[in-house]
Design a protein around this nucleic acid. Sequence first.
RNA 1: GGGUAGGUCGGGCAGGUGGUGAGCCUAGCUGACUGUAAAUCAGCCGUCUUCGACUGUGGAGGUUCGAUUCCUCUCCUGCCCA
Length: 397
Amino acid sequence: MMNTPGLEVARVSPAEFEVLVPAPVDGSTRARLGRLTLSHGVVETPQFMPVGTNATVKALDPDDIREVGATIILSNTYHLYLRPGHKRIEALGGLHKFMNWDGPILTDSGGFQVVSLGELRKIDESGVTFQSHLDGSYHHFTPELSIEVQESLGADIAVHFDQPVPPASTGASALAESTARSDRWAARSLAAHSRPDQALFGIIQGGLDPVLRSESTKAIAGLPFDGICIGGLAGDETPSQREDTIDVVVGLLETDPRPRYLMGLGSPVDLLEAVHRGVDMFDCVLPARVARNGQLWVPGGRLNMRNAQFMDDPRPVQDGCRCVLCRNFSRAYLSHLFRAEELLAYRLATCHNLTFTLDFMAEIRSALRTGTFTARLPELRAAASPSRSRAVAVQSE
RNA sequence: GGGUAGGUCGGGCAGGUGGUGAGCCUAGCUGACUGUAAAUCAGCCGUCUUCGACUGUGGAGGUUCGAUUCCUCUCCUGCCCA
């Protein structure tokens, strides 16, 4: 963590981040290899965190989560506050014990629900009033309450209660206002945080405006957070808008010793381009969600298992893949499971896409470790690119 | 053989008592999904030259300006009786 007099005494190194292979001095890439040591384990970076909003990575059990290669997962403050209640989870021994996952956990603050539940909330300086999507009841979320909930849950990493906005579709004044407020809430969150075994990350906002982004980056980086999140992306912006924004932020953080976490990003090509620009950590629902909807990721493309062409296809989804799906079952069988709406389809597909994603990250780390990342970029892009969108399903014969 | 109820887009239905039938469910086809209100959502789903047009109510014929509707014959299906 940062060297901040006073705080360092009170807090017992909840997050040690070590850069093992720094970005090369020739500037060919800002990608770097790192190691983040947390209360419940070590996380190698660049790393992807599967999302388990309701204290479960949908369709998987903890053995599955381990087997796909996850070392850290994300869960959610807002959802667990509403149900089953953070006090209940605390009384039952904390989130790790509750869901029987003994590895690192990061909890999102509920800030994203300001966006995703846009119709059901009102914002003022004190916080956000949500109307529960479950029963319509009203709940006032403040930065302090978010920290209280996250401390009850006991995740390895908490994040500050921020205020993201859809970057490409938000007006300038609204963006400036929400960014400034988000930065004020960062300071309040830090002041409220007391749990010594829990790291706290701050979140940069600022939409796509380079000036606002710079201001927010300086504001957040100037506070003694254990890590720096880049929020408000992975929304409706274009890839080049996103990449420009990452460049602005990381450019200002180049000498900052803390991990950089881009929230919400998850397609393989997006992960690769963000790593290339200096991002260390990611989370995303995408691989798991699209898997449940039948889209399976393979090198250089993707397969929609609901398509008629797979009904008679005896091959595995991906040749040589180590996942439970590809080791044991054919495309034809998975196609049948989806058509029959059998529950096994969701588990197998999720295992595959998360394995694909996490193995891809491992491949990136391997390239960084051996100093071959820049040289291998074209090859890595080829493996990842078509999975962004508008991809043609590959049909390897 | 007699009686009776029916035949509407792959399947299941709604509707229509002389003037506007392409509506629903399901199956099927395709696409989307990025800090999870998502095992969800959207489009298509008779034909075509597809922002529109055309055809279509088992078949053939009749009456009529006009027929899914009325009449005749006929084919098919369910049920009851013999």
